[in-house]
Simulated assay, not measured.
Amino acid sequence: MDDTNQYLNNFITYLQIEKNYSEYTVTFYKDDIREFFSFMNEQNLHSLSEIEYFDARLFLTGLHEKRLARASISRKISSIRSFFRFLNREKLIIENPFALVSSPKSEKRLPEFFYEEEMENLLQACEGHKPIQVRNRAMFELFYATGIRVSECAGLRIKDIDFSLSTVLVKGKGSKERYVPFGTFAHEALEQYINISRGQLMKNGEHEFVFVNYKGGPLTARGMRHVLNTIIKDASLNGKIHPHMLRHTFATHLLNNGADLRTVQELLGHENLSSTQIYTHVTKDHLRRTYLNHHPRA
């Protein structure tokens, strides 16, 4: 298996440069493919060109035997299929053994989101006058106001924020750009952070990224996840927060308050409407509960 690691490195470079995937996404690809390399060692397979459809099926069977969630299995198969497609494109293998391996149908899980009362508790947990607290409040307000992904937030630069129009230029997946408006709460929190606290955190450093860590460097996506987990702990809410919950909350609250699906699709940066339609299940559940709670003949 002398060439496998080099092939993986080439593939990772392709994901980073040509596909412009985030560091978080690339890590998943890398881990999934390395898991397949371990399987090759166990099966005494020495070359990627040796892999056949039977081997791919055997690997899939092993994933099922580990009782992994269907979504995890689908992601792993998709990662490895993409890897072999890349090798085929580079003429390093003749056929993609994973081309005909079908991923398990994903569970129709509704997106998790916070209720408005929970959001108030979370926002109160961000309050404070220390530079880090002001930064955390601005970041949290921006997540809730725009529904942007954590990788998009980590990549924001000062020039991307237009305070005169209260909009932010977001660079999404595949280098696609979109303008997203934000409201007065996010506007005030961002102005306070950028005009006062950001300079205090920068400590004479120089870079254009909006959010900075306590050392003055750019705050990474991983750092943002840590900040959000700290906020939920301070708010005394059960469970762990992940940035996508704020994205789900943004979409759900918009739809619950009358926004149309196409607008939400554009704000989220979804290429297909089907990606946004899952939120209609959440809002239908909200309507049903409201009806049962308030209609006299329910």
Rank of each mutant, 00 (worst) to 15 (best):
L156W: 04
S22Y: 00
V212W: 10
N293W: 01
T25E: 07
Y193P: 14
Y279T: 03
I278P: 09
T167M: 15
S197F: 12
N238Q: 14
G128D: 06
S38K: 14
G205D: 12
N10D: 13
N41E: 14
Y29G: 07
S22V: 01
P218M: 06
T61A: 15
Y14I: 04
C153S: 07
F182M: 08
R157Q: 15
N121T: 01
I73W: 01
T13I: 09
T263W: 05
F113Q: 06
F36P: 05
T252R: 02
Q277D: 08
F36C: 08
S236G: 06
Y7R: 06
H242N: 15
I241W: 03
T220R: 00
R70Y: 00
A298T: 11
Y21S: 00
E112S: 13
Q124Y: 04
M1H: 12
A186M: 04
N257A: 08
V170F: 05
N5I: 11
K130Q: 15
K130C: 03
R247K: 02
K30I: 01
D285Q: 15
F113V: 06
L68C: 05
I80A: 02
I232V: 14
N96L: 07
T280S: 11
R137I: 02
A154R: 04
S22I: 01
T184Y: 08
L169P: 00
C153Y: 02
G258T: 05
E120P: 00
G217T: 14
Y144K: 08
H295M: 13
P97T: 04
L261A: 13
I158K: 15
F36K: 08
I194S: 04
S175P: 03
M1V: 11
T184M: 05
I33G: 03
R137N: 07
F11W: 04
F182Q: 09
